[in-house]
Design a protein around this nucleic acid. Structure first.
Length: 541
DNA sequence: TTTAGGG
DNA sequence: CCCTAAA
C-alpha cells in the first residue's frame, strides 16, 4: 500500500502499463446549463483575440518554441498561455500533459479525405470533446466549413492579484483518450463517490511526472479534472497553506488595495479550453499544425459562452445578489471562487476580434451577473443551427455533485489575516469535492451497528448498511466498516484513552465479542452466510 | 460496486 | 473520513 501510494504521487517509470484500462461505466452526461441563463452568456472575444494573436505569432516558429509559458498582459490582467513541452506523439501513450493551454495534439492516422480549410490547412477531422468528454468529431463538410459543435466548456481562472508565476491556471478535462470517457456515478446510498484514481489516471500522472521531471514545479500537472477524479478541498486547512503558497497565492497587498475602492480585484490568471483532438496528415507542416490548433482554439471562443460563478464549491445562482452578499468581497473568507466558461456552441472556422480587452473588475455592489463580463456576446456568424446542448443544470445549493465541481476553478484567496490557500495539489483543479463533514456516530447508531454486525458478520458491510442504516444516507458501508474498526479499537483501549461521546461499555463488550467471533468464523461461515444470511448471529458466550 | 486495509 | 487495490 505504501508503494502504491507512492506511485500515485511520484514517478515510477517502471510501472506504467502500456494500455489504460477502460472504465466500466461511462455514463454519458448531458449539458447542464439551463436556457434561462442566457443572460449569462458571454463571449470571450477579447481573451480569444489576445491568445489567438499570440498563437498566430508563433505559427512560423519552431515547435520547440512552444515549450514555455507565456503571459499576456492585458490592462493589468494576465492571461497565461501555457504551452506544453511534450511532443505531440506523447499522447499516443495516453499521457498528455495537463498543462496544455489549448490542446494536446493527437497523432493519429488519417483516415478521411482531407478537406481544405480556408487557411489552406488540410484537416481530415477534428475531434473535440465536450464538457463531458464525449468526443465530438468534426468533419469538414463538403462546403469546406466545419460544423458546429454542441458544447465545449472551458474554465476561466481568476486570481486575485496574483503575481506568482507558478501558475497552473484552470483545469481541463483529463480525457486524452477517447476511451476514457466516464463520469462519476453516484453510489447507491447517495454518497458522492470520489472517483477512484483509476489506473488510467495513474498512468497519465506518472508519465506526466516523467516527462517533466526536470521541471516538475513549473509544469506541475493540473489536477485531474472533474470527470476523472474528484479531489478534496481543504478550504481552511492552514496546515497546508504554508506548503502551497508558491503555487497559487496572492501577495499581501491586495487586501489594502481592494479595500480602498471596495472593489475586489481579480485577474485572469489563466484559462484553458477543453481537450480536443485534431487529426492531421503526417505530411502536414508544423506551421499548418500550429495553425490548425489555433483554429480550433479560436473556434472555441467564438461561440456563445455561459458563465457560471462558483464560490466555495457552490454554484451561485442568484444573479441579483451582490458580490458582497454572495461573499465575494475583499474582507471575507473567499477562498474558492471559480468561474465556468462554457461555450454552448463551437464553430469552425473561427473568427477573431482582436480589439480591446477589458479588465475584469468586481465590485461588491454590482451583481455577479453584471460583473462577470468578459465581453457581451456579439452577433456571431454562426454557421449552424444553434443546436446547443443545453439542458438541466438544476442543482441543490449544497449539492457537491459532479455538476458543481465539474469546471470549478478554485481561487485560494482572501482570508482575513492569513491566506486561505488551498493545497496546491488540490487547488489547481476544478475538483472541489469537499471532505464530508464529520458526523460522529451516536450511541444508538453504534448499537444498531453492533447488532447488525453480530448478525451479519464483519465482511458484509453492504448488508449491514441495508439492514441497519438503509435510511441513513450519510452512512455508507465504508463508513460502517470504518466505524466498526474504530469501535474495535476503542474497545481495546482504556476508557481514559477514548474520546468523543462515550460508548457504553456494554456495547464495546459486544463489539469485542462479535469481532472475535466473526474473526474466527468468517471464512468458515462464508458459505452458510450466503445461503442463510439471516440465521447467522454472533453468539454471546 | 464491494470489500478490505492502510492513511 | 479518505484513498484505493483487488475482487
Amino acid at each position: 500500500m505504501v508503494l502504491q501510494k507512492r506511485l500515485d504521487y511520484g514517478f515510477n517509470g517502471y510501472q506504467v502499463p502500456p494500455t489504460p484500462r477502460a472504465p466500466r461505466s461511462a455514463r454519458k452526461r448531458v449539458s447542464s446549463w439551463k436556457k434561462n441563463e442566457d443572460k449569462n452568456r458571454m463571449c470571450a472575444f477579447d481573451l480569444l483575440a489576445t491568445v489567438a494573436g499570440k498563437l498566430l505569432l508563433e505559427v512560423d516558429d519552431s515547435v520547440n518554441k512552444l515549450n514555455h509559458e507565456e503571459v499576456i498582459t492585458i490592462n493589468g490582467s494576465a492571461i497565461k498561455v501555457e504551452n506544453d513541452s511534450s511532443k505531440p506523439n506523447v499522447c499516443d501513450q495516453g499521457s498528455c500533459n495537463k498543462s496544455f493551454f489549448a490542446s494536446e495534439i493527437m497523432k493519429a492516422p488519417v483516415t478521411d479525405n482531407c478537406s481544405g480549410l480556408a487557411s489552406g490547412i488540410t484537416v481530415s477531422e477534428c475531434k473535440i470533446e465536450d464538457a463531458y468528454h464525449e468526443q465530438i468529431k468534426i468533419k469538414p463538410p463538403d462546403n469546406g466549413k466545419l460544423p458546429v459543435v454542441n458544447s465545449v466548456d472551458c474554465n476561466l481562472n481568476l486570481v486575485i492579484r496574483d503575481d506568482d508565476e507558478n501558475s497552473y491556471g484552470g483545469t481541463r478535462p483529463d480525457a486524452r483518450n477517447n476511451k476514457t470517457i466516464r463520469a462519476p456515478p453516484r453510489m447507491g446510498d447517495g454518497r458522492i463517490r470520489r472517483l477512484s484514481a483509476s489506473k488510467q489516471w495513474r498512468i497519465s500522472h506518472h508519465t506526466d511526472v516523467y516527462r517533466n521531471k526536470n521541471n516538475c514545479y513549473k509544469y506541475q500537472r493540473p489536477l485531474r479534472d472533474y470527470p476523472f477524479k474528484k479531489r478534496r478541498l481543504y478550504q481552511f486547512d492552514n496546515h497546508s497553506n504554508s506548503v502551497n503558497k508558491s503555487g497559487f497565492v496572492e501577495d499581501g497587498s491586495r487586501l489594502d488595495a481592494a479595500s480602498q475602492d471596495s472593489h475586489v480585484k481579480l485577474k485572469i490568471k489563466s484559462f484553458r479550453v477543453p481537450e480536443f483532438f485534431i487529426e492531421i496528415p503526417e505530411t502536414a507542416t508544423i506551421s499548418s499544425l500550429k495553425r490548425t490548433v489555433m483554429e480550433a482554439v479560436t473556434a472555441i471562443f467564438s461561440g456563445e459562452l455561459h458563465v457560471g460563478v462558483m464560490l466555495q464549491g457552490k454554484r451561485i445562482r442568484d444573479d441579483n445578489k451582490t458580490l458582497s452578499q454572495t461573499g465575494i468581497c475583499h474582507d471575507n473568507k473567499l477562498d474558492a471562487l471559480g468561474f465556468t466558461l462554457e461555450p454552448n456552441k463551437l464553430q469552425f472556422p473561427s473568427f477573431l476580434c482582436p480589439e480591446n480587452q477589458s479588465l475584469i473588475r468586481y465590485s461588491p455592489h454590482q451583481t455577479v451577473a453584471n460583473e462577470v463580463v468578459i465581453q457581451q456576446q456579439a452577433d456571431s456568424p454562426m454557421i449552424d443551427t444553434r443546436n446547443a446542448t443545453e439542458s438541466d443544470h438544476e442543482m441543490v445549493e449544497n449539492d457537491k455533485s459532479d455538476l458543481d465541481s465539474r469546471a470549478l476553478v478554485t481561487v485560494p484567496g482572501i482570508d482575513s489575516g492569513e491566506l486561505a490557500v488551498v493545497p496546491i495539489r488540490k487547488a489547481k483543479g476544478a475538483e472541489v469535492a469537499q471532505r464530508r463533514i464529520r458526523r460522529p456516530f451516536s450511541v444508538s447508531e453504534v448499537e444498531a451497528l453492533v447488532e447488525a454486525v453480530e448478525k451479519l458478520g464483519t465482511g458484509r458491510w453492504r448488508d449491514v448498511k441495508l439492514r441497519a442504516f438503509d435510511d441513513a444516507k450519510h452512512r455508507t458501508y465504508v463508513d460502517l466498516k470504518d466505524k466498526w474498526k474504530t469501535l474495535v479499537h476503542t474497545a481495546k483501549i482504556s476508557p481514559q484513552q477514548r474520546r468523543g461521546e462515550p460508548v457504553p461499555q456494554e456495547l464495546l463488550d459486544r463489539v469485542l465479542i462479535a469481532h472475535g467471533y466473526w474473526s474466527h468464523h468468517q471464512a468458515k461461515n462464508q458459505f452458510k452466510l450466503n445461503h442463510q444470511p439471516e440465521t447467522q448471529i454472533c453468539r454471546l458466550f
